[in-house]
Computed example of a mutant assay.
Amino acid sequence: MAHEEETHIDAILVPTDGSKAAMRAARQAVRVARENDATIHVMYVMDMGDVDYVAVPSDIAETKGRLTKKGRKFAEKVQALATEANVECTVVVRSGIPEDEIIEYADEEGIDLIVMGKRGQRDPDKPLLGSTTKRVVGRTDVPVRVV
């Protein structure tokens, strides 16, 4: 007889870009966290590839500062949901290629579940799955719940 492993969820990663889909995913992640007494890790990844042309290093620093502030604002909305539900929450802002950073963080932190929106800010009109979500699903062994 096959032995089925019981999966316990201790840590949930919620990538956010501030989109409606990301907030729906965050609400679901908070519910799952509350049911499992788990911790939420909310992550915003600054995609510096979005910066079209930057002439001087001071512009890069200014742009990075602005994106960090924007990312924290998005992440803090998720953190507020978690706090309201009495769920422990960690906020992470990173810079890089979103799917790479999401997968790397999940591995580093022993994440048990990633909860993501179907489509983010960059691809709201694409069918079914957005590009970042699709790449994360295809490249990680961590279960991914797409909301």
Rank of each mutant, 00 (worst) to 15 (best):
D47P: 01
M23I: 04
E84R: 11
Y44I: 00
P15Y: 04
V32R: 09
G65S: 15
P143R: 09
V32S: 06
K69A: 14
M1L: 12
L128Q: 09
E84L: 10
I40G: 05
E62Y: 12
D112Q: 07
T39D: 15
I111K: 02
R94D: 05
R145T: 06
T132D: 02
M23S: 05
G117K: 01
R122F: 07
V51N: 06
Y53A: 06
Y44N: 02
K64Q: 12
I103C: 02
A29D: 01
I9R: 11
M1S: 15
L128E: 10
Q79T: 05
V136W: 07
G117N: 00
T132I: 08
G96Q: 10
V91E: 12
L67M: 15
D59Q: 09
I97K: 13
I12H: 01
R145E: 13
K134E: 10
E76W: 12
K126V: 03
I12F: 02
M46N: 11
T7C: 12
M48G: 05
V93M: 11
M23W: 06
G18R: 08
A2N: 10
D107E: 15
P15T: 00
K64A: 07
M116I: 03
I60F: 15
R34H: 13
I103Y: 04
R94I: 03
E84D: 13
E62D: 08
D107A: 05
I60W: 14
K70L: 08
R34S: 06
I97M: 10
R27N: 04
V137G: 01
M1P: 01
N86L: 09
D50L: 14
Y53V: 02
D112S: 02
V87G: 04
E35I: 04
